[in-house]
């Protein structure tokens, strides 16, 4: 299982790097799906089976499909960055990369200096998650439901365009 963790981890990191550096949006999206799938494997290996399933279904499935739809609607599947050969010049990525590296270094320091470094991971059953979700976190669930509702209404409202004419035959007049 440790081997699986390492392999999935490497795949996740590599495909994520590929996803953020591709100039073609569709390619980036495909790498991202790979990244999420790899992350799902990691979660599975860590013992969070239910979370891994959700990762595949919601992230790699539903959310990515939304992205695909939008990319299709906007028709930017091809060369999104106009100056393709110039966009990954060091001037553009060296600053953010440095910043991310510093952040990573700080986070690593925080992780590796944990007082109980030898702690082990244990499996958390979906059943306990479900019980916790509907007892202790019931209010959170309600709030999440309201938020999803708000998201749906907001998306609908934003996507709604007023018709310019009442009937399609009258359009030209």
């Amino acid at each position: 299982m440790l081997i699986a963790f390492y392999i999935a981890g490497v795949i996740a990191v590599v495909s994520t790097i590929m996803a953020v550096t591709r100039s073609n949006a569709v390619h980036a999206l495909l790498y991202l799906i790979v990244s999420f799938l790899a992350a799902a494997v990691v979660l599975f290996v860590l013992g969070a089976h239910f979370a891994a399933a959700l990762e595949v279904i919601v992230y790699a499935g539903a959310i990515m499909v939304l992205f695909v739809f939008v990319i299709m609607m906007l028709n930017i599947g091809g060369e999104t960055e106009k100056a393709k050969e110039r966009w990954l010049v060091p001037k553009r990525w060296i600053g953010p990369a440095l910043m991310a590296a510093i952040l990573f270094a700080i986070l690593s320091y925080a992780i590796l200096n944990q007082p109980v470094a030898t702690a082990s991971l244990s499996i958390v059953e979906p059943k306990t998650v479900g019980i916790s979700l509907y007892t202790q976190y019931l209010l959170g669930v309600e709030i999440a439901a309201v938020m999803l509702m708000a998201g749906i209404i907001g998306a609908f409202h934003l996507g709604y365009t007023k018709r310019k004419s009442k009937h399609r035959f009258l359009k030209g007049e």
């Binding site: 299982m1 440790l2 963790f5 981890g9 996740a12 990191v13 994520t16 790097i17 996803a19 953020v20 990244s35 992350a39 990691v42 290996v45 860590l46 553009r92 990525w93 600053g95 953010p96 990369a97 910043m99 991310a100 590296a101 952040l103 990573f104 986070l107 690593s108 992780i111 590796l112 944990q114 470094a117 702690a119 082990s120 991971l121």
Partner: peptide
């Protein structure tokens, strides 16, 4: 047993890469 530190480091690394993506 999968080491806690290594898995947390993986999460931190993914987070950093995502940050780079947002920025570039």
């Amino acid at each position: 047993q999968i080491p806690v530190e290594q898995s947390l480091l993986l999460a931190a690394l993914l987070f950093g890469i995502g940050l780079v993506g947002v920025l570039i």
